[in-house]
Design a protein around this nucleic acid. Structure first.
Lengths: 207, 207
DNA sequence: GATCGTTTTGAACGATCGTTTTGAACGATC
DNA sequence: GATCGTTCAAAACGATCGTTCAAAACGATC
């Protein structure tokens, strides 16, 4: 589109190619609802309103559209650290930031869930995105065990438990999607998950 | 193959068609590892060691192979009830039987997980299999809330939390499949999940 | 051993997949 | 205004998808 409105090309950043963004937006939506394999390039281009050839032209193939979706997410997750001197608080912060991100980018998180479940061949290249946060969670849990504020036998199971709660508990109803639409803020959602993780269904007062 | 070893045809039950069973076995394995869409009929028949046309001939199509996988599971889940007068025990029993089934049929459960995550178009016909157990869980949780032994705000989130823990916490490590192979019995696994569900990571003595 | 229905085979079908090709349209530079 | 590289649209590409078909092979019955 017509960039460079007389100025130096410095504002190029905000006006880059509509087409690439349109494809990415359509891909995010389609991959989330129909999965990667379930989405065809033609559906993608139809939804994006661009010609069929442009996926290959701009991205070099369907796969690269997928990977391009997670590049910003990769950058976001790189520089996250938590204070391990108080593991309990670190875990709360971890959950909170995860839930908040989930509210900001529900489709990306949903795609990640699908790919994890499918053990898709694309996971290899997604490890950069996923591994850091899982390792941070693992560190937090191990610190909490030493601290005595967190209890578990197997770190592996504990990590999976927390991740499972993060991923699953906030989902809409799988089978009665009608009765979903529970409007809660990301802060409320985070509190909910935190209580599940720390106390399960135990009917004790939460501190 | 040669059935009817001189007797009446009464033992037919154990000797039914090799081909159909071979296809089902191959399908269970392939669908679990590569997903339904990721599996081709040709791979299926190769693995089963049968000719390409036999999937359509015996089952009438790839889809019907999929549904046939869950017919026995459907029958199993129909007649399950739990004593709701003691919801806490009912929930423990529910979790235990789920975990045990998970150990008996890990591939079927894994396929179900995938289909749920994908919100696949096949879920409609799988509702017969899935809905009953989810509704039972829901009933148990609601009974427990009345009883005062189980605490939560939204039934929906609570159901998802329990299911997420059941499904996720026992998974092998998604990203380091090497360090999996944690050999625990289904009884131990059930105990683990029960503790997660009831107490989370809370470092309190379990009763 | 001829005849029947059932099961299996190999080849082919039309449809659709992701990708490539061709050439026109565009804006920038000289 | 001619020429350049970039961007886009239409058509076509080979490959592969799930399924079907005609004929061969099989087992049971007469």
């Amino acid at each position: 589109m017509g960039i460079s409105n007389g100025n130096d090309g410095q504002i190029e950043q905000i006006a880059i190619k509509d087409v690439k963004n349109d494809i990415l937006k359509a891909a995010k939506s389609l991959f989330a609802t129909k999965g990667f394999e379930g989405t065809t390039v033609r559906q993608l281009c139809d939804k994006a309103g661009v010609s069929l050839a442009l996926v290959s032209y701009h991205f070099g193939g369907k796969d690269n559209v997928f990977y391009a979706l997670f590049e910003p997410l990769d950058r976001n997750f790189k520089n996250m650290t938590y204070d391990l001197t108080v593991a309990e608080k670190a875990l709360r912060d971890f959950i909170r930031s995860f839930v908040i991100y989930r509210y900001e980018e529900p489709e990306l998180i949903h795609i990640l869930q699908q790919e994890l479940m499918m053990r898709s061949p694309r996971l290899d290249k997604l490890k950069n995105v996923i591994l850091p946060s899982w390792q941070q969670l693992r560190s937090i849990l191990e610190a909490g065990k030493l601290e005595g504020t967190i209890q578990f036998d197997s770190v592996q199971f504990a990590v999976n438990f927390v991740m499972g709660t993060l991923i699953f508990s906030l989902n809409d109803s799988f089978l009665n999607p009608s009765e979903s639409d529970q409007d809660i803020t990301s802060e409320q959602a985070a509190g909910l998950v935190i209580r599940f993780v720390f106390n399960g269904l135990n009917p004790t007062v939460i501190k």
